[in-house]
Design a protein around this nucleic acid. Structure first.
Lengths: 132, 132
DNA sequence: GCGTGATTACTCGGATACAAGATGTCCGAGTTTGAGCGG
DNA sequence: CCGCTCAAACTCGGACATCTTGTATCCGAGTAATCACGC
């Protein structure tokens, strides 16, 4: 059980778009920075577009940029877009709705999600620009 | 990203062993209850044995039972045994130790682990026997 | 100069290939219990 | 009644087979900006 690389790429792409907000960035450039193949990254970005987190413009000088109210986007939004919203723990064996193990796991997962919901992409901007 | 079925089986097996503590239970019986093939379940149980959470006795009337101080065993112990202890989020792309995304993800994961570490298998016994 | 068409630089989407890990099966080997049998 | 042997009931471990999912590539299609060319 691991987070997929796609999630990693998506988060980094979002962060990079955030640091160059308002400007459109091409897949080529993004892929270069993240060291991924552009075609693969484009698939990931397409998911983010369909989820309404970023906007794409075709044609020459095209590229991706964040939506207008991007400061509200949290980590969990990105993760759910890529990984799906299903629970980490596959229901109980005999669909017993009272399964205690299920309850415990769901509760623990909830704690993590709460943390990721609280953390916005925009929270990283200040610090990350300092690091660069 | 999902928890594997093996983890599910392991947790349920532990719970079942806990309800029938002190007595040895054969793979056949456990597998019957969990609706898995005995051979597959035995692989999972072997991991738990090597991790020192349960003990096995060979031969006729053999089987598995919890170690003596089993009440200390928490969810995270079982999960780490099956899933491994590696972080859920694959380090950063360019091994940048200051990667902020990495920090956020590790922190969120920590919250979940803390919850799972606090929750012991033995905590479920009272309630689960009531449910039955 | 100005419109029109061709070229170029992009994104989009589907189909496909590849790799790794989870899941599950099969079989042989070792171990303990217990029953049967002979003395 | 005692001791020996043998069969049965187990776990253990490795070597496979299968299936799903993540990862990645290729190619054709559509789209917008820009450039070239002729009027």
């Amino acid at each position: 059980m691991k987070y997929s690389k796609a999630t990693n790429y998506a988060l980094h792409a979002m962060l990079h778009l955030a640091t160059t907000s308002n400007q459109r960035v091409g897949v080529q450039e993004l892929a270069g920075r993240l060291e991924v193949s552009p075609t693969y990254l484009s698939k990931i970005l397409t998911k983010l577009v369909k989820a309404g987190m970023i906007e794409s413009t075709s044609g020459a000088n095209g590229g991706y940029k964040l939506r207008s109210d991007w400061e509200d986007i949290s980590f969990i939004d990105v993760i759910h877009t890529i990984e799906g919203t299903a629970s980490l723990f596959d229901g109980c064996l005999k669909h017993n709705p009272r399964c205690l193990i299920q309850k415990v796991m769901a509760s623990a997962e909830g704690k993590m999600e709460e943390e990721l919901r609280h953390q916005k992409i925009s929270d990283l901007i200040k610090e990350s620009t300092v690091v660069r």
